[in-house]
């Protein structure tokens, strides 16, 4: 009886776990995994000649076409998202550090304020940058007076797109950074400043390495949506600033070239996967989210 007694409850517990998982996991399997598979088969479909009509097949040329036609869009997406991610990290770090280690009784309120932009329309906020960065607005005038703008304007340039991307995904950078910094024992930083004396060395040797899980999670949560975004390029950039997200959206919804859009989606997924894997290896942490 004793062996059965030890195994029985464990089995029953596992069954409860599976029951708890069932609805949500089934939902994700049906509406996330199967669509991805479906998208993969769509990416290999063969044109029938008439627009929006395709038949099943294994036309790997779709991928070659997608790359040769849209490689600039890919490159732009990765570069814009990369720059925006670095900028977001630089902007988010001081705020996250302050909230985690210095804010005291203001901490809860400041956290609410970081999340609050989620409740203001993403589209309208992006649109608002049109007003802020307009040709006759203070920022553009000032930078122009200092001769810092190559095109003489911000709106409808890559600068505006990158600025929009940086702004829009900032909370996704701040929150994981905050979570990581919050776990650091302040005494470690004190001990660091005791050992190294200079605040910069303390930061480099103690705070920064300890906040690494937050840096990795934050950069991923910023980079991935930024690389796939098309709203910022559409609203703030010119036709020369279009990103891969624009290409996927246009091909799918306007041109109804489903195989092309699907192939582009898969190339985007694959390049993100490769970049993320290399990045996580180099950052030396397996900890995600």
């Amino acid at each position: 009886m004793t062996i059965a007694a030890a195994v029985g409850p464990a089995r029953r517990r596992a069954r409860i776990a599976y029951l708890l998982l069932l609805p949500g996991v089934a939902w994700l399997a049906i509406f996330f995994i199967i669509p991805l598979i479906s998208l993969f088969f769509t990416s290999l479909q063969v044109s029938t000649g008439s627009s929006g009509k395709y038949k099943a097949g294994f036309n790997w040329r779709n991928y070659v076409e997608a790359l040769s036609e849209y490689w600039e869009f890919f490159l732009r997406a990765l570069i814009y998202a990369g720059i925006a991610t670095v900028l977001a990290l630089v902007i988010a770090y001081p705020l996250a550090y302050f909230i985690a280690l210095k804010a005291g009784r203001w901490r809860a309120l400041m956290l609410v304020l970081v999340v609050a932009p989620f409740f203001a329309s993403f589209l309208l906020r992006t649109y608002a940058w049109k007003t802020i960065l307009a040709d006759d607005a203070v920022i553009t005038q000032t930078l122009n007076a200092l001769h810092l703008l190559p095109d003489g304007r911000i709106l409808n340039t890559s600068i505006a797109v990158i600025a929009g991307l940086t702004y829009n995904f900032l909370p996704f950078m701040i929150l994981p950074l905050y979570a990581a910094l919050d776990k650091i024992d302040p005494r470690l930083i004190e001990a660091g400043s005791d050992l190294y004396a200079s605040p910069f060395t303390t930061f480099r040797k103690v705070t920064w390495p300890l906040s690494m899980p937050g840096v990795v999670a934050g950069t991923l949560l910023t980079f991935i949506p930024a690389a796939g975004d098309y709203i910022n390029a559409e609203l703030l950039g010119s036709t020369k600033d279009k990103m891969i997200g624009n290409a996927i959206q246009t091909n799918f919804i306007e041109f109804r070239d489903y195989p092309m859009a699907s192939a582009l989606s898969f190339i985007l997924m694959a390049s993100i996967l490769i970049i993320v894997t290399v990045y996580i290896r180099r950052a030396g942490t397996e900890e995600l989210v």
Partner: peptide, 17 residues
Amino acid sequence: ENPTSGQMFVGAQEITD
């Protein structure tokens, strides 16, 4: 925690399982 083997009693009542 479940014992790997053995029994437990309170008075005459077995409580192992």
